[in-house]
Amino acid sequence: MVKQELKKLGLHYVIVELGMVEILENLTTEQLALLKICLLNSGLELMEDKKIILIEDIKKVIVEMIHYTDELPKVNYSQYLSKKLNQDYTYLANTFSEIEGITIEHYIINLKIERVKELVLFNEHNLTEIAYLMHYSSVAHLSNQFKKVTGFTPSFFKQIQQKKLHHIS
């Protein structure tokens, strides 16, 4: 879709990847405005602010780490993010907090709890296995963090969700 929009505008690109485009030409203000409009009409957004782009990269790495890899990194998250994004972690953390209004740690915790919710509801693993998969030091640690974020224990959360499903069917 992005390639088509660039072609319509007569722009030549070097790279078009998920979340990134490198254009050969220096864009005029008019071309940039047209590109923004074309992308918006296609349901996409042009991100120019380097901090916003960095935040999206941080989120992408965290989501990939928690949702799409079988094994979480053996190093701590700060080292993993710093290495993956080739940036100083303090800079990443400060920029993330400034833009998002929440720390990277809280963002990770919230995403991990969302993943735990999925795993609890899919019923493929018991809580001990989930704690291990999500790199919690113990079931108690997982349960405490889950309750702090959701207000429920994992088992009570599961009961509530199952009752909701029974009422729907």
Rank of each mutant, 00 (worst) to 15 (best):
L121A: 07
Y107I: 07
N144T: 07
L85I: 03
Q159S: 15
Q162T: 13
Q79P: 00
R115S: 04
L133F: 06
P154Q: 00
M134P: 02
L85D: 02
N94I: 03
H166D: 11
G101Y: 00
I160G: 03
F157A: 09
E114C: 05
K163L: 14
K163I: 14
E98T: 04
E114L: 08
Q162W: 12
H135W: 03
N86Y: 09
Y136I: 07
K83D: 11
I130A: 06
K164W: 08
L111Y: 00
E100F: 04
A140E: 09
T128Y: 11
S82T: 03
S138E: 01
I104C: 05
I104Y: 01
R115F: 01
V149Y: 03
Q162Y: 14
E124Y: 14
L119R: 11
F96M: 01
I108M: 08
K163M: 13
L111I: 03
K163D: 10
F122V: 11
Y77T: 09
N123E: 15
S78Q: 08
K83M: 06
K117S: 01
E118Q: 11
K117E: 01
N76P: 00
T103Y: 02
K112I: 10
I104Q: 04
R115E: 07
K164H: 10
Y132G: 04
Y91G: 04
L165I: 14
H166P: 00
H135L: 05
T103H: 04
K147M: 13
S78R: 12
V120D: 04
Q161I: 09
T128R: 10
L92N: 04
E105M: 11
Y80H: 10
E100K: 15
N144P: 03
I104F: 00
E118F: 06
V120I: 15
I109L: 15
D88V: 09
V139R: 14
F157N: 02
L165G: 08
L165H: 13
K84E: 10
E105P: 00
I160Y: 11
L85R: 03
